Amino acid sequence: MGFKLLSKLLVYLTASIMAIASPLAFSVDSSGEYPTVSEIPVGEVRLYQIADGVWSHIATQSFDGAVYPSNGLIVRDGDELLLIDTAWGAKNTAALLAEIEKQIGLPVTRAVSTHFHDDRVGGVDVLRAAGVATYASPSTRRLAEVEGNEIPTHSLEGLSSSGDAVRFGPVELFYPGAAHSTDNLIVYVPSASVLYGGCAIYELSRTSAGNVADADLAEWPTSIERIQQHYPEAQFVIPGHGLPGGLDLLKHTTNVVKAHTNRSVVE
């Protein structure tokens, strides 16, 4: 069995187990497998329904001669939608809004960016022009300005110390501490036991640490421990890039980060 097929099978099995364990909360999309990078042309966006009122959005972007996937989250909030992270750029984010209108038909009224990198804030200006209120932590807003990236308009308070959590509509926002970046936030959907790890969490097929220019490698494993301790009931975990899975993604990420750190020390 090929690795790609095995990865998709694991996603399907995880979703099936969740649907059985929580039949009222989960209505997993039966329309197909989780979209992969090879299936999404740059400039297009796919939506994948995880649970009743919960979707991931998947886009792709060219970077350094390669094409990478990027995940975000959409959560229903009454007759409105909360968006977590842009679709990595203005063109993708405009396509995301169009796809949401086509498939869901509810307005996106608020959006949260989970850290300051372009795959999370690139497209904020498109959201703002569409009347979406954009939010991020003060740290993310400051770092985005320093980096020359787009800056969300509103500040999220109460997320300055490791372990801080605040309720934001249908989700809980959690600051686990520094990891992929010093400002990275985690998003949890309690009604569906869905954990969105953003770039602080890796997919299972990833074996290298990737972009760690703004990471705190020493603190990252401790931050992941905080996530595990705060959300032990999480059933569906979405990484910032690639295929979702279960809580095993947290341990896998820790292993990859520690291996990278150990290699760096040896070198």
Rank of each mutant, 00 (worst) to 15 (best):
M1H: 02
M1N: 04
K4T: 11
K4S: 10
L5T: 15
L5H: 15
L5I: 15
L6S: 15
S7W: 12
L10N: 15
L10E: 13
V11R: 10
V11M: 07
Y12L: 09
T14F: 07
S16A: 14
S16M: 05
S16L: 11
M18K: 12
M18Q: 15
A19Q: 15
A19I: 15
I20M: 12
A21S: 12
S22P: 14
S22D: 12
S22E: 14
P23G: 10
P23T: 11
S27C: 13
D29P: 10
S30H: 11
V37R: 10
V37T: 14
S38D: 12
E39K: 12
I40S: 07
P41F: 07
P41G: 15
V42I: 07
G43K: 06
G43V: 04
V45Q: 05
R46L: 10
R46K: 10
Q49P: 14
Q49W: 10
A51V: 13
W55F: 06
I58M: 07
I58Q: 06
A59G: 14
D64Y: 14
D64F: 11
G65P: 06
G65C: 04
A66D: 15
A66G: 12
A66R: 12
V67Y: 15
V67S: 15
P69L: 15
S70A: 05
N71M: 00
L73W: 01
I74S: 04
V75E: 03
D77N: 07
I84Y: 00
D85L: 00
A87I: 01
A87K: 00
W88Y: 00
G89S: 06
A90P: 13
N92G: 07
A94M: 15
L97K: 00
K102L: 12
Q103Y: 13
Q103V: 13
V108M: 04
V108Y: 02
T109W: 06
D119V: 05
R120F: 01
G122K: 08
G122E: 08
V124R: 01
D125A: 09
D125L: 06
L127R: 02
R128N: 13
A129T: 11
A130F: 11
G131S: 08
V132H: 02
A133W: 08
T134D: 00
Y135S: 01
Y135W: 09
Y135A: 01
A136K: 04
S137K: 05
S137V: 02
T140W: 03
R141M: 12
R142Q: 13
L143I: 07
V146A: 14
E147W: 15
E147F: 15
E147G: 11
G148Y: 03
N149F: 09
H154R: 08
H154C: 05
H154Q: 09
S155E: 14
E157S: 12
S161V: 14
V166P: 03
V166I: 11
G169N: 04
L173Y: 05
L173R: 03
F174S: 05
G177E: 01
H180M: 02
S181V: 02
T182A: 13
D183A: 01
N184F: 00
I186V: 13
Y188K: 00
P190C: 03
P190S: 08
V194K: 01
L195E: 00
Y196A: 00
G197M: 01
G198V: 05
G198C: 06
A200D: 03
A200N: 02
T207K: 14
T207S: 12
T207C: 06
A209D: 06
N211H: 07
N211I: 08
W220C: 05
W220P: 02
T222F: 14
I224G: 01
E225V: 11
I227V: 11
Y231N: 08
P232N: 08
Q235I: 09
Q235E: 12
F236S: 10
G240E: 05
L243Y: 14
P244H: 04
G245M: 02
G245W: 02
G246D: 13
L249I: 05
H252R: 03
V256L: 10
V256W: 01
S264V: 12
